[in-house]
Amino acid sequence: MGADATRKPRSLLADIVREQRRQAHKACAEIREAADSAGCPLPSLAVESTSAITGSVLVQLGGAPPDVITKLAKVIRAGTIALAAEVRPGEHADLISEPTAVNGTGVS
Protein backbone atom coordinates (compact mmCIF):
# COMPACT_ATOMS: atom_id res chain seq x y z
CA MET A 1 0.00 0.00 0.00
CA GLY A 2 1.27 3.46 -0.90
CA ALA A 3 0.98 6.66 1.08
CA ASP A 4 -2.19 7.56 -0.84
CA ALA A 5 -4.00 4.51 0.54
CA THR A 6 -3.68 5.80 4.12
CA ARG A 7 -4.79 9.35 3.32
CA LYS A 8 -8.41 10.21 4.14
CA PRO A 9 -10.56 11.34 1.21
CA ARG A 10 -11.07 15.10 1.01
CA SER A 11 -14.41 16.31 2.24
CA LEU A 12 -16.17 19.20 0.51
CA LEU A 13 -17.60 20.27 3.88
CA ALA A 14 -14.14 20.21 5.47
CA ASP A 15 -12.82 22.37 2.61
CA ILE A 16 -15.68 24.86 3.07
CA VAL A 17 -15.12 25.09 6.84
CA ARG A 18 -11.36 25.46 6.32
CA GLU A 19 -11.98 28.40 3.96
CA GLN A 20 -14.49 29.95 6.37
CA ARG A 21 -11.93 29.69 9.19
CA ARG A 22 -9.25 31.28 6.99
CA GLN A 23 -11.60 34.17 6.17
CA ALA A 24 -12.63 34.51 9.84
CA HIS A 25 -8.99 34.71 10.98
CA LYS A 26 -8.27 37.32 8.31
CA ALA A 27 -11.33 39.37 9.34
CA CYS A 28 -10.37 39.02 13.00
CA ALA A 29 -6.87 40.34 12.27
CA GLU A 30 -8.29 43.25 10.23
CA ILE A 31 -10.75 44.35 12.93
CA ARG A 32 -8.08 43.95 15.64
CA GLU A 33 -5.66 46.18 13.69
CA ALA A 34 -8.35 48.77 12.95
CA ALA A 35 -9.67 48.83 16.52
CA ASP A 36 -6.16 49.03 17.99
CA SER A 37 -5.15 51.87 15.65
CA ALA A 38 -8.31 53.76 16.67
CA GLY A 39 -7.43 53.31 20.34
CA CYS A 40 -10.29 50.85 20.84
CA PRO A 41 -8.68 47.48 21.63
CA LEU A 42 -11.03 44.50 21.72
CA PRO A 43 -9.35 42.15 24.23
CA SER A 44 -11.82 39.26 23.79
CA LEU A 45 -11.71 39.21 19.97
CA ALA A 46 -11.52 35.63 18.71
CA VAL A 47 -12.59 33.18 16.02
CA GLU A 48 -15.29 30.85 17.32
CA SER A 49 -15.53 27.15 16.70
CA THR A 50 -17.80 26.07 13.89
CA SER A 51 -21.40 26.51 15.01
CA ALA A 52 -23.22 23.21 15.46
CA ILE A 53 -26.48 24.97 14.56
CA THR A 54 -25.52 27.01 11.49
CA GLY A 55 -22.32 25.31 10.41
CA SER A 56 -20.74 28.74 10.08
CA VAL A 57 -17.50 30.05 11.53
CA LEU A 58 -18.04 33.36 13.33
CA VAL A 59 -15.80 36.09 14.70
CA GLN A 60 -16.59 36.81 18.35
CA LEU A 61 -16.07 40.51 19.07
CA GLY A 62 -16.21 39.80 22.78
CA GLY A 63 -16.47 42.23 25.62
CA ALA A 64 -14.74 45.52 26.22
CA PRO A 65 -15.15 48.33 28.73
CA PRO A 66 -18.00 50.78 27.99
CA ASP A 67 -15.59 53.65 27.24
CA VAL A 68 -13.87 51.55 24.56
CA ILE A 69 -17.21 50.56 22.99
CA THR A 70 -18.39 54.20 23.03
CA LYS A 71 -15.17 55.30 21.32
CA LEU A 72 -15.47 52.45 18.78
CA ALA A 73 -19.05 53.53 18.01
CA LYS A 74 -17.81 57.08 17.34
CA VAL A 75 -15.05 55.78 15.06
CA ILE A 76 -17.50 53.61 13.11
CA ARG A 77 -19.98 56.49 12.83
CA ALA A 78 -17.27 58.86 11.59
CA GLY A 79 -16.07 56.28 9.08
CA THR A 80 -19.61 55.73 7.82
CA ILE A 81 -20.10 59.47 7.35
CA ALA A 82 -16.74 59.76 5.54
CA LEU A 83 -17.60 56.87 3.24
CA ALA A 84 -21.03 58.31 2.46
CA ALA A 85 -19.42 61.66 1.60
CA GLU A 86 -17.26 59.92 -1.03
CA VAL A 87 -20.32 58.66 -2.94
CA ARG A 88 -21.17 60.64 -6.05
CA PRO A 89 -24.75 61.16 -7.28
CA GLY A 90 -26.04 58.05 -9.02
CA GLU A 91 -23.74 55.73 -7.03
CA HIS A 92 -24.45 53.82 -3.86
CA ALA A 93 -22.26 53.47 -0.81
CA ASP A 94 -20.82 50.00 -0.37
CA LEU A 95 -19.89 50.28 3.28
CA ILE A 96 -18.57 46.73 3.50
CA SER A 97 -16.19 46.76 0.55
CA GLU A 98 -12.51 45.91 0.83
CA PRO A 99 -10.32 48.76 2.10
CA THR A 100 -8.38 50.60 -0.57
CA ALA A 101 -4.96 52.20 -0.39
CA VAL A 102 -4.76 55.93 0.24
CA ASN A 103 -2.28 57.99 -1.79
CA GLY A 104 -0.51 54.81 -2.95
CA THR A 105 0.88 54.22 0.55
CA GLY A 106 -0.90 50.94 1.10
CA VAL A 107 -2.59 52.51 4.14
CA SER A 108 -6.36 52.36 4.21
Results as ranks from 00 to 15, higher is better:
residue 104 G to S: 15
residue 48 E to S: 11
residue 58 L to H: 13
residue 99 P to Y: 11
residue 35 A to Y: 04
residue 74 K to N: 08
residue 104 G to H: 09
residue 15 D to S: 08
residue 104 G to C: 04
residue 64 A to P: 08
residue 21 R to Q: 02
residue 2 G to S: 14
residue 95 L to M: 15
residue 89 P to N: 09
residue 95 L to K: 03
residue 14 A to R: 11
residue 82 A to V: 04
residue 41 P to R: 02
residue 14 A to Q: 12
residue 39 G to P: 06
residue 64 A to D: 04
residue 5 A to W: 05
residue 60 Q to K: 13
residue 62 G to T: 04
residue 90 G to F: 11
residue 87 V to L: 03
residue 40 C to N: 02
residue 52 A to P: 06
residue 76 I to Y: 00
residue 104 G to R: 10
residue 18 R to N: 06
residue 59 V to I: 05
residue 83 L to D: 08
residue 94 D to S: 14
residue 80 T to D: 12
residue 54 T to R: 04
residue 94 D to A: 08
residue 28 C to V: 07
residue 80 T to V: 12
residue 28 C to N: 11
residue 94 D to E: 13
residue 100 T to Q: 11
residue 11 S to N: 04
residue 16 I to L: 05
residue 107 V to Y: 07
residue 65 P to N: 06
residue 79 G to M: 09
residue 23 Q to M: 13
residue 67 D to E: 15
residue 12 L to I: 14
residue 78 A to L: 14
residue 60 Q to L: 04
residue 60 Q to E: 14
residue 39 G to T: 08
residue 48 E to W: 05
residue 88 R to K: 15
residue 33 E to Y: 05
residue 66 P to A: 08
residue 97 S to T: 10
residue 13 L to G: 02
residue 68 V to K: 00
residue 76 I to S: 01
residue 91 E to Y: 08
residue 81 I to W: 00
residue 53 I to C: 02
residue 74 K to Q: 11
residue 7 R to M: 10
residue 22 R to A: 12
residue 67 D to R: 09
residue 37 S to W: 09
residue 104 G to I: 13
residue 38 A to Y: 11
residue 52 A to W: 05
residue 6 T to I: 15
residue 22 R to I: 13
residue 12 L to H: 08
residue 57 V to G: 00
residue 18 R to M: 06
residue 50 T to Q: 12
residue 54 T to W: 05
residue 97 S to P: 01
residue 82 A to G: 01
residue 82 A to Y: 03
residue 79 G to V: 12
residue 23 Q to P: 01
residue 37 S to Q: 12
residue 71 K to R: 15
residue 101 A to W: 03
residue 22 R to M: 09
residue 9 P to Q: 10
residue 8 K to Y: 10
residue 65 P to K: 15
residue 104 G to D: 14
residue 16 I to H: 00
residue 77 R to T: 11
residue 9 P to C: 03
residue 86 E to T: 15
residue 25 H to M: 13
residue 78 A to P: 00
residue 63 G to H: 13
residue 35 A to V: 08
residue 77 R to I: 04
residue 51 S to R: 09
residue 49 S to G: 07
residue 97 S to H: 10
residue 62 G to M: 04
residue 84 A to R: 13
residue 20 Q to C: 04
residue 18 R to P: 00
residue 6 T to P: 00
